[in-house]
Design a protein around this nucleic acid. Structure first.
Length: 492
RNA sequence: GGGCACAUAGCUUAGCUGGUAGAGCAGCCGACUCUUAAUCGGCAGGUCGACGGUUCGAUCCCGUCUGUGCCCA
């Protein structure tokens, strides 16, 4: 048995005392008929409440307590918010008041009473009866500063949610954002589907996968890094408009922008191009921002961001020329571009390809500077093994990434649907993998077979939901928008 | 993986040049029938993240480890 501080022993003794008195400290027979928000909605505008003879019942956690000997106020928190309760000895009786006196901050109670206003005008519940529903054994953080230690906030999110209303608001907003996206997609006749999270061949992105093992099949499996190849198989199957909102897993570093598991929406639309998806993305993001924020102009971490359309569109090359300190002639010459890249601090091998070099320079000099929504287009073919080649220039593909606040938020392209070309691109990736590139694609023969049946001309897109939520909730870290972010093992 | 910073009571924290810790809230006892960071009186609560080292003596200086944050790869 662990040693408990006096503080924790006191609570445990109270529970023991309740059991001894024949009172269950964990009953489950109280049915609240109202929430704190119901009371505000019904009586928030009513000045004279003397005549109101409503019977209100609420349940929630005691967050604060102000006692006066024969009367007391408590702050009750339920799923909708907070409401003040007024408890008077005269009203509930001597015995009940003595019991009430043993209730602690953190306990969950059920109460019944009628609405009234205090002398200072605060809408409150005048309690006729109050019962303990759950005895809490652990003290909550203090009322004024709340819980600020970030480690505890992430490890014990339940405490964060109890004492920090702004934490709860973020997750309420997150839920609303996802719902808005779902209904937007449904409104465009997209079908929501679920494809495997466990892949025999990880594909659809350049990333290191998590590896697991299936015992009965005695087979290695990979947690998916993207659903892309399965969703496009569905388009082959005639499901012309599909989307999936779900988790991807990438075995990479953890930072304010990266969690090993994160949420993406991927969607595929047959007979559409990547250019159609730029318009689509503007419409979707503006719809969500308007509903969540009530505006298209907002601030994120102190920086003004505007979703006013149309959004800027730039090629990778033009973005480098605009934001970097390099001339076109220099950038277009491989050797000059390489020495430029090294001059700005990049460590690159001599044999780096032109496409990879271009992307390295782009990420170093341009990406983080693009604060306003910007579609970056004309990606090198060799870094885009699943994208359709541009009809006029086979060195680039019909692809865009959406950058907002200096971060990649979405990635989309017209899909490569030529099975011969796709097989060649896979083989090129396999060659890269053999050379030691752990992020290169695997060969997926079945995916090529699906393309051989015929993938309609299609465009597809992935949107990082966590990063979108960060943007719309003004959160500095991805951990603030993921309920239980990944952390190291807790030390005892 | 590299650099910098942080770890003191349940929570939020102070702690000088090295002499084994102080507060607010929460808690306990008492007073108080309209408070809202309620108020007033009293009390209790600490292996100073862990392990080593230096020292007569370490929360403090040094090293290693663990966890966390920020920056970089």
């Amino acid at each position: 048995m662990e040693e408990l501080s006096e503080l924790l022993l006191q609570r445990r003794r109270k529970v023991d005392a309740l059991w001894e008195a024949g009172i269950n400290p964990y009953p489950n027979d109280f049915k609240p008929q109202h929430t704190s928000a119901d009371i505000v909605a019904a009586y928030g505008d009513v000045e004279q409440l003397d005549a109101v003879d409503a019977k209100i019942s609420v349940a929630g956690r005691i967050l604060a307590r102000r006692s006066f000997g024969k009367a007391a106020f408590i702050q009750l928190q339920d799923r909708k918010g907070r409401i003040q309760l007024y408890i008077k000895k005269d009203e509930i009786g001597e015995e009940a008041f003595a019991t009430f006196d043993t209730f602690d901050i953190g306990d969950i109670v059920g109460a019944e009473g009628f609405p009234f206003r205090t002398k200072t005008g605060e809408l409150s519940l005048h309690v006729r009866s109050i019962r303990l529903l759950v005895k809490s054994l652990l003290p909550l953080p203090e009322k004024f500063h709340g819980l600020t230690d970030v480690e505890t906030r992430y490890r014990q999110r339940y405490v964060d949610l109890i004492v920090n209303p702004e934490a709860r608001e973020i997750f309420v907003k997150r839920s609303r954002i996802v719902n808005l996206i779902r209904s937007f997609m449904a409104g465009r006749d997209f079908l929501e589907v679920e494809t495997p999270m466990m892949h025999q061949i990880p594909g659809g992105a350049t990333a290191r996968p998590f590896i697991t093992h299936h015992n009965t099949l005695d087979m290695e499996l990979y947690l998916r890094i993207a659903p892309e190849l399965y969703l496009k198989r569905l388009v082959v199957g005639g499901m012309d408009r599909v989307f999936e909102i779900n988790r991807n897993f990438r075995n990479e570093g953890i930072s304010v922008r990266h969690n090993p598991e994160f949420t993406m929406m991927e969607f595929y639309q047959a007979y559409a191009t990547y250019e159609d998806l730029m318009d689509f993305t503007e419409e979707l993001f503006c719809h969500v921002a308007q509903e969540i924020l009530g505006t298209l102009d907002f601030t994120n971490q102190g920086i003004d961001i505007s979703f006013q359309r149309p959004w800027k569109r730039l090629t990778v090359r033009d973005a480098i020329l605009e934001y970097g300190d390099i001339e076109a002639k220099q950038l277009d010459d491989h050797d000059l571009a390489l020495s430029y890249a090294r001059s700005i601090g990049l460590t690159l091998p001599d044999e780096i390809s032109s496409g990879k070099l271009l992307m390295e320079i782009f990420e170093e000099v341009a990406e983080h500077k693009m604060i306003q929504p910007t579609f970056i287009t004309a990606y090198p073919t060799e870094v885009s093994p699943l994208s359709r080649k541009n009809d006029h220039n086979p060195e680039i593909v019909d692809r865009f990434e959406l950058i907002i606040g200096g971060r990649e938020i979405a990635n989309a392209f017209s899909e490569l649907n030529d099975p011969v070309d796709q097989k060649e691109r896979f083989l090129a990736q396999v060659a890269e993998k053999d050379k030691g590139d752990e992020e290169a694609h695997y060969m997926d023969e079945d995916y090529v077979r699906a393309l051989e049946y015929g993938l309609p001309p299609t465009a597809g897109e992935g949107i990082g939901i966590d990063r979108l939520v960060m943007l719309l909730t003004d959160s500095p870290s991805i951990r603030d928008v993921i309920l239980f972010p990944q952390l190291r093992k807790e030390i005892k």
